[in-house]
Design a protein around this nucleic acid. Sequence first.
DNA 1: TTGTACGCGTTATCAT
DNA 2: ATGATAACGCGTACAA
Lengths: 345, 345
Amino acid sequence: MTVHRRPTIADVARHAGVSKGLVSYALNDRPGVSSGSRERILAAASDLGWTPSVRARSLSTGRSFACGVVIGRSTDVIAADPFFHSLIAGLEDVFSQSGQVLVLAVATPGRREAETYRGLAEDRRVDGVVITDLRAADERIALVERLGMKAVTLGRPDVESPFSSVSVDDGAGIRSAVAHLAALGHRRVAHVAGPEAMLHGRRRAEAFLSAASDAGLEPVVVDTDFSAAEGAEATHRLLSRPDRPTAIVYSNDHMAVAGIGVAQRRGLRVPDDLSITGFDDTELGRYVHPALTSVATDARAWGSAAARALLDALSGGTASHRELDEPTLIVRESTGPASPPSPRG
Amino acid sequence: MTVHRRPTIADVARHAGVSKGLVSYALNDRPGVSSGSRERILAAASDLGWTPSVRARSLSTGRSFACGVVIGRSTDVIAADPFFHSLIAGLEDVFSQSGQVLVLAVATPGRREAETYRGLAEDRRVDGVVITDLRAADERIALVERLGMKAVTLGRPDVESPFSSVSVDDGAGIRSAVAHLAALGHRRVAHVAGPEAMLHGRRRAEAFLSAASDAGLEPVVVDTDFSAAEGAEATHRLLSRPDRPTAIVYSNDHMAVAGIGVAQRRGLRVPDDLSITGFDDTELGRYVHPALTSVATDARAWGSAAARALLDALSGGTASHRELDEPTLIVRESTGPASPPSPRG
DNA sequence: TTGTACGCGTTATCAT
DNA sequence: ATGATAACGCGTACAA
C-alpha cells in the first residue's frame, strides 16, 4: 500500500529518465534541453500531477511568491471605504492566477507603518508591495526600496521613484463634477477634500480650484481625514458661512452621504437648497435620498492593473507608468439647479 | 570587507561552540540541552541578531506560517461591509504578533469558493483559515478538514465541526432592538434579514420572531442578500403593505441607511412615521439624518479572539467554543414612539 | 546533460 | 542526560 505522497521533481526525473536538474530547466522554459527530453519531461510531470513546491522554491530562490498591501493606521476610515475592497478584489484577481498570494498587513498605533513594511521585508514574507494613498514626499518609496522589495504605486509619486505606477486622473472626475455644477448655475461651490498630505486628496483639491476658477466660480476648500465625522463637521462649517455654498463636491461618497445628513438636519433640501456630489460611486449612494451624484472610478480594474505591473516588476521588467481610463460622473438626484440661498441655512 | 549576510543557525552554532542541531533544540525550548549550553546558545543568537528563516522553517516543517481568509463571491456586498474590515484588523493584531501573516483570497465567479480554499491548501499556502459568514449545513467545514487545514469559525456551525468557534450572540442584539421598539409602543414590526442560508442571518431572524411574539407584536420578515439594493427593495415592499409596519429592524446598517432613503422618498418621516434600527453601528450611521439607532458589535475584538483560537489550534490545542460579550443597542434618532400610519405611506 | 552543492532549519540516529 | 552527525524537505544553479 503506497502512501499518497506529493510527487517531487525527483519523481518526475525518474519517470522521464533524466536528471533532476534537467527537469528544472525544462519546466522553467530554459534553453539547453532537447525538444525530445522536454516533451518527455512535461508528459511525466503532467502524468504524475506534479506542481512545484512553493516552499522549496521559496527557499532556493529567496522569493516568497506573495505580495502585500499595508493598510494605514486609520482603520475606521478605511473600514468604511468600499474603494479599498474593490481594489483588493482586483489585485487578487490577478495574483491568484499567477500563483501569488495576497498578504494584508495592518499598521496600528503600536506598530507603525514603517515597522509593518519592515516586518514584511524582514524575512521576505512578500516580494513586493502595493503602495496606496500616496502622500506628499512619501517616505515609503525610499523605505521599500531600501528594504529590497519591489513595489507599484497607485498614482504617481511626487518624489523620485524606481517603481511602476498605475494612475487614474481623478482630477478629471472632479472637473466633470465642477462643470456639471457650473452648468446648473452654481457659483459658490465648495470642496470637502481628503487629507492635504495625501497626493490624491491634494490633486483633487487642486483640480477643483482650477476648474472652479476657470469656470468663474467662487471656490472654497476644506480639508478632512476622509471620515464621515470630519465630512459632517466640514459641512456644518461651510453651511454656517454667511456666503454659504450652493453646492459641495465631496472627495468620497461616505462624506457626501454624511453631508446630505447634515444638510437635512439643518433644514436644507438637497438638491433644492444645496447640491452635493460624491466620489467613488458606492452602492449605498444609489439608495440614499436623494440618490447621490458621484464620480465613478473602477477600483477593481485599478487593482488588476497594479497587480500586473507589480508582477511585471518582479519578473525583471522596467518601471512603467500607466494611466487608466478617466473616471466618469454619474448624475443622479443630489445635484440640481442653483437657487438663491434661503436665510434659514 | 564583509558582505552583510543574514546570520544562519550555523553561525549561531559556531559562535556558541556547539552543533547546529543543538541550537535548534535550545531555541525551540526542547529537552536535552544543558542549561549552560542553552544560555550560551541564546546569548550567541541574540549577539548575532539571529532570527529563524521562515522559508527554511517552512520547508522543513511543512508549515507556512500564514493564515487565510476567503472572501465569498459577492464583492459588492462585502465591499460595503465595514464589519469585515474591523474583523481583518482584529485578526492582524494577533497574527502579526506571532509571526503569522494574513492571506486574503477572493472567490470570484470564475474561481468558486471551494476552489479558492483548495488553492490555499494545495501547496499549504496557509496553515489555517478563518471561516466567516457560516451557512446552514456549511460544506466548508468538511472541505477544510479534508484539505488538512486547521480553522476557526465565526459563530457556531449547525453541523459537526472539529474546529474552534468564537461567537457573538447577535440574537441578543436583535432582542434588545425589539424590546426598545415594543417599549416605544410599536406593534407591527418588520425585520429586513440577511440571506436565509447564512446562519447569523437566520438566527437574527429567529431572534426577531421570537422576541416579537413574546412581546405580543405582529412581526414580518423579509430576506435579502445584505445589499443596499435589496434592503431598499424590501423596504418598498414592506411600506406598500396595507398594514405596513411602524418599525423596521435591519440586519445591517447599510440596508438601514438605504431604508431611511426609501422612507424619505415615499414621504415618510423617520422616526415619526417609521422607526428604523440598524446592525453593526458603523460610523456613517451616526451622521445620516436621522442618526441611526443600531446594534454595536465589536468586530475587531471578534477578529482578535478568532485569531487566538486559530493559533491555539495550530499549536495543537483542542477545539474550544468561546462566546464574546453581547452586542449592545445604541439608541439614536431613527427610533421613536409609534404613531398610527398615515394613509400616504 | 548530468551530478552535486546549496539554501537553512528540523529531527531522527548514534555516540559519549 | 548531552551533544554531534547526518538525513531530509525540494528546487535551483553551476561545474563538469
